[in-house]
Design a protein around this nucleic acid. Structure first.
Lengths: 110, 110
DNA sequence: ATAATAACAACTACAATGTAGAATATATTA
DNA sequence: TAATATATTCTACATTGTAGTTGTTATTAT
């Protein structure tokens, strides 16, 4: 049995990005979406490391793209959020939501 | 200048708990609220360690309670979220919100 | 053929955050 | 002054976050 832990924030971001990208989620498209959406520059190394860990934990699945694409370079590795990944996301969101419930931040330093 | 990083999830939970508790935020009340709200058992050691780090980063402020309380035991240490802590919270929330934007989880495994 | 280039993924190393449990401090009460 | 109650601090290790470098595999130019 798993220890039912929550996701780290970066892990959560990556999972969400993959969900959004649908069939086109691989290293650099994920990175692109991430830096477009949040204000943080993600290095490609950091990204692949986390993708690996998420896959090992069973929250992600992957398949290699066809080697014969019409472009140069190595084959892409496409990612997909597993069912387990989806429930992890759901749990994290719920926990965050209930913690935010009733909290009002002062507007002083927007 | 700070490196504008995001908060870890646990850090975020703690900050929110302190905000909710207002004038009564100290070790074990924080712990209590946390385990009531999210489904995770927080050991007291883990909690104090993170409180310390948050204070060192300037996201929390603390003061010691009066030594002469009408009960046994050591003085309480009360915490309060600093202005910097509040903006960190705000930023984390915004990032999460924009990442969740448009994501629909399947209902398969609720 | 083969060198150059492009598009990727994998590896390595270290810092920051998460987690637990034991140890210590300080007050009240018997 | 010992026992007990209530809290915090210390120590150690696991997991996650982050960056940079290196390796792979394809296309294109010579």
């Amino acid at each position: 049995m798993d220890k039912e832990k929550f996701l780290g924030e970066f892990e959560q971001f990556i999972l969400l990005a993959i969900l959004k990208l649908g069939d086109n989620a691989y290293g650099s498209s994920i990175r692109q979406l991430l830096s477009d959406t949040i204000e943080r520059d993600v290095t490609i190394g950091a990204l692949y490391t986390t993708l690996d860990r998420l896959e090992k934990k069973g929250l992600l699945e992957s398949r290699m793209g066809e080697a014969t694409a019409e472009r140069g370079g190595r084959a892409k590795k496409y990612f997909k959020v597993s069912a387990q990944g989806q429930s992890a996301l759901r749990r994290s969101k719920q926990a965050l939501n209930s913690m935010w419930q009733g909290v009002a931040l002062s507007e002083a330093n927007l």
